[in-house]
Computed example of a mutant assay.
Amino acid sequence: MVVLLKKCEMVEDEELVEVVEMEVGEVVCDYELGGEDVGVMKGCAVKGVEGDGD
């Protein structure tokens, strides 16, 4: 399982994004959906639609 965090580019504080990543990991573990094996990615759908490779 992979979790995609959207809108990360709108957050100026990188530490806040890291906290959200940790919280998502804990929720996934709580629901027994894969635990440590779950990947968390940061993404932006707008950049994908625009064709921006970054």
Rank of each mutant, 00 (worst) to 15 (best):
V20K: 02
G35N: 09
V40P: 00
V2D: 15
E21G: 01
G48Y: 04
D52R: 06
V17G: 02
E23N: 07
C8G: 03
E50W: 09
V49D: 06
K7Q: 08
V40I: 15
E9D: 15
L4F: 15
V2M: 11
V27G: 06
V38I: 14
E15Y: 10
K47G: 07
M22G: 03
E36F: 11
E32M: 11
V49T: 11
A45H: 02
C44A: 02
G34V: 02
G51P: 00
K7W: 10
G51L: 11
V3K: 04
V40C: 04
G43K: 03
L4G: 08
K47Q: 07
V49K: 09
M41Y: 13
M22T: 03
V38L: 02
V49Y: 07
D52P: 03
E12R: 13
C8E: 14
C44L: 01
L33I: 08
E18L: 13
D52W: 06
K47T: 05
V28E: 04
G43T: 13
L4I: 08
Y31W: 07
D13W: 03
G39R: 05
V17I: 15
L33R: 04
V38C: 12
A45L: 09
V24M: 05
E9G: 12
V38Q: 02
E36S: 13
E36N: 11
G34M: 03
K7M: 15
Y31A: 01
V28I: 12
K42Y: 09
D30H: 04
M22Y: 10
K47E: 05
L4S: 03
D54T: 10
V28W: 00
D52Q: 10
D30K: 10
G25Y: 04
E14T: 12
K47N: 15
E50S: 11
Y31D: 02
L16R: 09
V19P: 00
E14R: 12
E15N: 10
L16W: 04
V19A: 08
C8I: 08
K42Q: 12
E14I: 12
C29Y: 07
E50L: 14
D30E: 12
G25F: 08
E15I: 09
E9C: 04
G39W: 03
V3W: 00
D37C: 07
V24Y: 02
D13E: 09
L33Q: 08
K7I: 05
M1W: 12
L16F: 06
K7F: 10
V28F: 00
V38N: 01
